[in-house]
Amino acid sequence: MKATICMALMATAMISCNGNNQNSIFPAGCELRTGDIVFRRGGGISSHAVMMADINGRYSHVGIVVDSAGKKMIVHAVPGEPDFEGDPDRVKMDTPEKFFSVTNANAGEVKRLRGDTLTPIKAAAFAMEIYCRYTLFDHDYDDSDTTKMYCCEIVEFAYAKAGRSLAGTVRHDIKLPGLNAFHCMLPSDICNSKLLISIIDF
């Protein structure tokens, strides 16, 4: 049953990206590896809210590169980016070009685990499992409950389960005007990890 759901989701992801000629800031010729961690900053309201909260950060969103039938894709959790009418906020799988489309990003970076090639592959496999179980987006930003997940939670969970925590125990108490209070990770907690090296920023 899980395999059937996963195949359906992957087909949806591929179909939604086929023929997608939208402009992207993703650099031509950039070679991603399975398990790479990708960051982006956008110009929308959600991105601005994250940047207000993340005073030590350059990015508002993070995802992890997976291998989907030989094609590099990005698993991430994001609200407000439906693939079709009625599509709920959930963990998604997009091409790098779509993840870094000019609609969603005005800056980006690719980082990689330093000196380790096996752990990223394991982490990517865990991220793919999260995608395949049709995990919904966690609007409460509560990483103690993995039935729903937000972007930082996916990356940290996948790497921690593979044996290398990136954010550690760091969490922030966030209170923005008009929103509930959250106790959560921020993109900079992962981006600033000394375990990572920068491959390219753009």
Rank of each mutant, 00 (worst) to 15 (best):
A3N: 06
A3G: 08
T4N: 02
M7E: 14
M7I: 15
A8M: 08
A11H: 08
A11D: 13
A13V: 07
A13W: 11
M14Y: 07
N18F: 14
G19E: 04
N20L: 12
N21Q: 00
Q22K: 14
Q22E: 15
Q22Y: 14
I25D: 10
F26K: 07
F26I: 06
C30L: 14
L32T: 05
L32P: 08
L32W: 05
R33A: 09
T34E: 06
G35H: 02
D36T: 11
V38K: 07
G44Y: 13
S46M: 13
S46V: 13
H48L: 15
H48P: 09
V50D: 00
M51I: 10
M52P: 02
M52F: 09
D54P: 03
D54L: 06
I55G: 10
N56S: 11
G57Q: 08
R58V: 01
R58C: 02
Y59M: 00
Y59T: 02
H61K: 05
H61Y: 00
G63D: 04
G63H: 11
V65S: 03
V66K: 08
D67W: 04
S68P: 00
S68R: 09
G70Y: 01
K71F: 08
K71Y: 05
K72D: 04
I74P: 03
I74E: 01
A77G: 08
V78Y: 11
V78T: 13
G80Q: 08
E85D: 13
E85K: 09
D87H: 14
P88K: 12
P88R: 13
R90P: 04
M93P: 07
D94K: 04
D94W: 09
D94I: 11
T95C: 02
T95P: 08
T95I: 03
K98N: 13
K98F: 15
F100I: 11
F100H: 09
V102E: 15
T103E: 15
T103A: 15
N106P: 07
N106Y: 13
N106S: 08
K111Y: 05
K111P: 00
R112G: 01
T117A: 05
L118K: 06
L118P: 08
T119K: 10
T119L: 03
P120A: 03
P120Q: 09
K122Y: 07
A125D: 12
A125H: 15
A125T: 11
A127Q: 05
A127M: 00
E129S: 13
I130L: 10
Y131H: 15
C132H: 06
R133L: 00
F137Q: 02
D138S: 10
H139V: 06
Y141I: 09
D142E: 08
S144T: 15
T147V: 07
K148I: 06
Y150S: 00
C152A: 04
E153S: 02
I154A: 10
E156N: 05
E156W: 05
F157K: 14
Y159N: 05
Y159C: 02
K161F: 04
A162K: 05
G163D: 05
G163S: 03
R164D: 03
R164W: 01
S165A: 06
L166N: 03
G168F: 08
V170T: 11
D173M: 11
I174L: 09
I174C: 07
P177T: 10
P177Y: 01
L179E: 07
A181Y: 02
H183E: 12
C184S: 15
M185W: 10
P187M: 09
N192M: 07
N192T: 10
N192S: 06
S193R: 03
I197E: 09
I200W: 07
I200L: 15
D201C: 10
F202K: 10
